[in-house]
């Protein structure tokens, strides 16, 4: 006997919406999985007409791109949702934002008019706030990193301990004083394995900088500018 199939039919997707959201303050300690659950519940509470997949275990149509690591804050996380009927963008943004906890903030909702958002997320701009160290030491290490041909670090990944180069992914790294810390601003290309901001920090310790409490914030993601100094708006082509 064949496995019985459910009699449900999935409602087709009528509208795809791309969303930029932020992970701020204490909410930066939420993992990506935590965010996914919170979003699914927020969608339900806000009454968003989300589309579901067919089958025994229907799943909401949500796809995520490049989530920031647990512990890092972000001003530029992206996802795309499929809806069963068209909605007004600003109302959707406001309703989702209201239904998510403070610190998970929906910044933009733009109707998708192009394929492959993920392809346009080529690089990220990261802010590293390094506490308890002299600014000059941090900046000297940053200069040394950019002057090196390669600096290898190791990190435990799902595939086990991996060793990889950090320098090659760094398009740019600037350093300066902050209010109570040293501030690094790095443009990091999205490579495989991904180089994360804590890998950049580890590269600095490889070069002799002592370990120190550091706060990471992703400021932007998008296509890499021609001079590699910045990234562009990945939703620009969807805004007509």
């Amino acid at each position: 006997m064949a496995r019985p199939q459910p009699d449900r039919v999935a409602e087709p997707v009528q509208q795809r919406v791309r969303i930029r959201y932020a992970k701020r303050g204490r909410l930066r300690f939420a993992s990506h999985r935590d965010f996914q659950r919170a979003l699914e519940r927020a969608i339900r509470r806000a009454g968003v007409p989300i589309a579901f997949s067919a089958g025994f275990s229907p799943h909401p149509r949500i796809s995520y791109a490049n989530a920031a690591p647990t512990g890092a804050a972000s001003e530029a996380e992206y996802l795309e949702i499929g809806l069963t009927r068209p909605v007004a963008m600003e109302r959707l943004r406001a309703a989702l934002d209201a239904a998510l906890p403070d610190g998970m903030d929906v910044l933009e909702a733009v109707e998708a008019r192009t394929p492959d958002l993920a392809d346009r997320l080529q690089a990220s701009v990261w802010l590293l706030e390094v506490f308890d160290l002299p600014v000059a030491d941090v900046c000297a290490a940053a200069e040394a990193l950019m002057a090196s041909p390669a600096v290898e670090v190791s990190r435990m990944t799902k595939q086990g301990l991996r060793t990889f180069d950090v320098r090659g992914a760094l398009a740019r790294l600037e350093c300066g004083p902050g209010a109570d810390c040293a501030i690094l601003r790095g443009v990091i290309r999205h490579t495989t394995p991904a180089v994360r901001p804590d890998d950049v920090l580890q590269a600095l310790t490889v070069l002799g900088l002592p370990e120190s409490p550091t706060r990471f914030t992703r400021l932007a993601q998008g296509p890499l500018a021609d001079d590699a100094s910045d990234v562009g708006d990945p939703l620009a082509v969807d805004r007509v």
């Binding site: 509470r45 806000a46 007409p49 068209p86 909605v87 007004a88 109302r91 959707l92």
Partner: peptide, 9 residues
């Protein structure tokens, strides 16, 4: 159910 939807037409 759920509550009247707060978004969309």
């Amino acid at each position: 159910v759920p509550m009247p939807s707060s978004v969309g037409a």
